[in-house]
Design a protein around this nucleic acid. Structure first.
Lengths: 259, 259
DNA sequence: ACTCCAATGTTCGTAATACGAACGAGAGTT
DNA sequence: AACTCTCGTTCGTATTACGAACATTGGAGT
């Protein structure tokens, strides 16, 4: 490792990540296998995490405790965006009856920071913190379109565009031209490129300087809408919501500057 | 330290926690001061966290990246509770126009795992992961009332009941009898014991075995409601919501057992 | 019921890791 | 311009965390 690097921290965080929604309870050996650590090492990290309150155990099985949320909490609460956006998302969902979300860009992924689901039961659960590849999501397209040319070049150079469905755009050239269109029209629509049957439409949220800092979207099953109906019925309320969030965000920013 | 303990992991997590909503951007020295580490140590951990993608830096200032959410994400998404509860919270908020939340107990604190705010601007921001002392919150009272006698004894023995407002119940004896009442009546009301002007009412969410696993609440400003109006207008919808969440949760649990 | 096997969890001497004192760089003040 | 104070960085060392080896548990086979 070129840089100064604390191996134990990296390994300890890997232990936290070893737990997932499918297997929320793991034995010591399970953790060792998932993290490529020796059992002795896994044990040390687990005992440390139990001591710190991040992990619980009955002696055999280990699971995450609610305290792990505090690690993301500082980030979430420092971001005024979710707080500001939520009421507007509620209103949007009440109007169009589709799930609405807000996300930010992190490396090559979009990360959900606020979400209002419809009452419909959905196949994929999307919690705060969920990550999806930017290149094949509507919010990702909007966020990528907001990057500087240099940043976009770096993104395309560093990240292969993985094919997740037959419709996924995987050519950098094609994505570039799609991003040009998104930038020009001010919104993005993605049709079943992330997952079969999933269609979504997104709009940017910009700061005062005009830089895209987040995206808001509506997503629905392909069976419920056509591309035209989405554009006709969902786009106008979505754009109005994005504008309202932006306005509130700018107002909140001024309030902070001059309290 | 009696147990096997990885110091570097504990220190590294402390570095993550050094960031908060008030000061989301810190210099290396700021972090060192906040964590009681030497600057050299703080530097090692920060560089490691930058390398792992959990922290961003412009060279001078450090801040958390959205990736920190992934540490809490596994916990959140393994918990079916927020997913199940959210639609019911939405409905409740639409009906009574007060903010609704769901929390679980962790050590001596309640931890918010789902929340639907009203459009009203509030003084205190409550994000997912926010912690409050259990003894002086309505959800905390409901959760403490659901503990076994032995667990409650351990709680009272291990945690001094801090006075946060003049009204906070700080005597273990008084709290015990209040918890008895809460257990008998099936809900809790707390009037400005956490913060002046804040009044809230909570109900338990139980698993099939009858154990209280979470609490749902409504909170409002003392100026907007009286104790009687809260009990008359808020309690019935709150109890109905708790019942609906419980029913859905039990249904989801059976679906999981026999897919 | 007993033995054996395979997996799990734990111990402890060692070497690599992370430690912090000492150093150097940079900004603000007199 | 010289000084000072705080910041970030380096590097030899001692402590920390490492994992091979050992102990323990649970289950399959006879």
């Amino acid at each position: 490792m070129a840089e100064e690097y604390v191996q134990s921290l990296a390994r300890g965080l890997a232990v936290i990540r070893a737990f997932d929604a499918v297997t929320p309870e793991l034995t010591l050996s399970d953790v060792a296998r998932k993290t490529d650590l020796t059992r002795a090492a896994a044990r040390r990290f687990l005992l440390t995490l139990v001591d710190l309150g991040y992990v619980r155990t009955d002696g055999r099985l280990f699971s995450l405790s609610p305290r792990v949320l505090e690690l993301g909490y500082a980030y979430l609460s420092s971001l005024s965006l979710p707080e500001v956006a939520l009421p507007h998302l509620e209103r949007l969902v009440a109007e169009v009856h589709e799930s609405a979300s807000v996300s930010v860009l992190d490396e090559a992924d979009v990360v959900y920071v606020a979400r209002v689901p419809t009452t419909r039961i959905m196949r994929v659960t999307i919690a705060i913190g969920t990550r999806f590849p930017a290149h094949c999501t509507s919010m990702g397209r909007v966020l990528l379109a907001g990057l500087s040319p240099a940043e976009l070049d770096a993104f395309l150079a560093g990240n292969p565009l993985e094919r997740l469905t037959p419709r996924t755009v995987t050519s950098p050239v094609a994505l570039r031209s799609e991003l040009d269109r998104v930038r020009a029209q001010g919104w993005a629509m993605v049709d079943q490129e992330l997952e079969e049957g999933l269609r979504s439409i997104a709009a940017p949220i910009r700061n005062r300087a005009g830089r895209t800092i987040a995206a808001v979207n509506l997503s629905s099953h392909a069976s419920r809408t056509t591309l035209e109906s989405a554009r006709r019925d969902l786009l106008p309320p979505l754009l109005a919501t994005a504008a309202r969030i932006e306005a509130d965000l700018h107002a909140a920013a001024s309030r902070e500057a001059t309290p």
